[in-house]
Simulated assay, not measured.
Amino acid sequence: MSVFKRILVVALLISFSSPVSARAPRRAAASSGEEGPEGAGPPYASAIVIEAETGRVLFEDKPHLPRAPASTVKTVLELLVMEMVTEGKVKLTDSITTSAWASKIGGSQVYLKEGETFPLEDLMKAIAIHSSNDACVAVAEHLAGTAEGLVEMMNQRAQELGLRDSHFTNVHGLDDDETAVNVTSAYDLALIARELVKHPKILEWSSKAEDTFRGGTFILSNTNHLVGKFPGLDGLKTGYTRRAGFCLVATAKRGDLRLISVVMGSPSNKVRFAESARLLSRVFSQYKKVPVVREGETLGEVMVSRGKEEKVRLVARAGFSALLRSGQEKAIRRSVTKQADERPAPIRQGEALGTLQVFLGDSLLATVEAVAERDVARMTTWEWIKSWL
């Protein structure tokens, strides 16, 4: 064989032995700014980060994608309980007796026995910290007579909150039965969490790495492994089933800024915590609360006709802090509008006499009432005549 033929054969062998890639070109990074292995999307099915006070969305990736929530659905149960406590319908000291049905619920549990009695607060801690399914059913039966009755209350509350992506079928999140699978979205869970963090007791419980139950004989270990590790994090709820994947509703506060994040459908326990921490860190680094108006801040003056004082100061009824990206402070402007340059006496302290509007560029951020700083009494007829002498 000639030298040329030998070279040709070797070249052909090399070409046939080399793998040919049918993979599409690597796509741009996902909206999260990260992606998984080459060609893959972010390591979750959907995610969102919102600011708790206003509900403003600061990051989103398929936020309305319908998903099974697993145990994160327990945030709805927790919200109903705390609202009923606030309204005085139940007390955290109320005794709850475990039914036969509640004692048979599987999954994460505190192994309630039929006939065992615990205060509502103990069972709420078991739910918030340890994600106990049996405690959920016991609480639901106490509040609504049956777990199914509480599910109806959950769906009603969801409608009141405007949750368009949600329908609930049980109180604990188990989804082995395909006919009874809860459905919600990252966006809806964030709205639920926004209501839930208004109740300090929930954060008191969910921020504990562990607590005790059943007289100290059972340790409640927090399923949220970011507690005590991520600065400012104090909740909120984990969830996992094969159908749902690994989910986490988290909340953290730094300074005046509280964020809520939701990650759904992560492939592993480690990934859901890593992604939640990454998203929260990213948003905390990009945004800050900037005081724009102080409560009681002087905004101007209004002249007073026939008053014992010639004028009264206008002050801000409430303070306002704007959530801004770095460098946006320079685009903030304020505009005060008086109802009138002069008002007749009497004027009462706190009476609205104008408004302060706060803009970011051309976008209106807030309107704050401008009110009278103090009372201004009206002159008597004799006092008014003397004032002209």
Rank of each mutant, 00 (worst) to 15 (best):
A158H: 05
V181S: 04
A180Q: 15
K289N: 12
L356F: 12
V312G: 01
S363C: 09
N133Q: 06
F16S: 12
T223Q: 14
S185M: 02
A28R: 12
L12F: 14
K386M: 15
V304I: 14
T184Y: 09
G173A: 12
G300A: 06
G232S: 05
Y44R: 02
R378W: 02
H172N: 10
W101G: 04
L174S: 09
R157A: 14
E342P: 15
R242S: 10
P25M: 07
V171K: 02
V85R: 00
I219G: 13
A40N: 09
L77N: 06
E121Y: 15
G350P: 08
V110S: 07
V290C: 11
M154V: 09
G115I: 01
A22G: 13
A68W: 03
G39T: 11
R282S: 14
L92Q: 05
K125P: 03
S261I: 00
E195C: 13
V181L: 03
A158I: 05
L220P: 06
V9F: 09
E152M: 06
E152F: 07
E83Y: 10
A100F: 04
P291N: 13
A100Q: 08
R282Y: 11
K229Y: 09
D176A: 10
R306N: 15
S18I: 13
G228T: 06
A138M: 06
V271A: 13
F168W: 08
F246S: 02
G255D: 14
V76D: 05
S326I: 12
D375W: 02
R317S: 13
S326M: 10
L191G: 01
D234A: 01
H225Y: 09
S261K: 01
S285T: 14
L79A: 11
S335Q: 14
A209C: 04
E116A: 02
G149A: 03
K113E: 14
S207Y: 03
S132L: 05
L120W: 08
D375E: 13
V262E: 01
M264E: 00
S71F: 10
I260D: 01
V171G: 06
H167R: 11
S221Q: 13
G55F: 06
M1C: 07
M379S: 09
A316G: 11
G173F: 05
G265M: 02
G350H: 07
G265D: 01
K308F: 13
A340V: 10
E53F: 04
S103P: 04
D341Q: 00
S335F: 12
K201F: 15
S18L: 14
A11D: 12
L191Q: 11
A11S: 12
Q159F: 08
R378C: 03
F213E: 00
V262R: 09
A331Q: 14
P291K: 10
L65D: 10
G239M: 04
S335D: 15
R164S: 14
S71W: 08
A138Q: 03
F320H: 03
R306Q: 15
R348Q: 06
T75E: 15
R317N: 11
P119L: 07
S131A: 12
T337F: 13
P42T: 12
V57R: 07
V110T: 07
M379H: 08
S363A: 13
D176Y: 07
G41Q: 09
A47L: 01
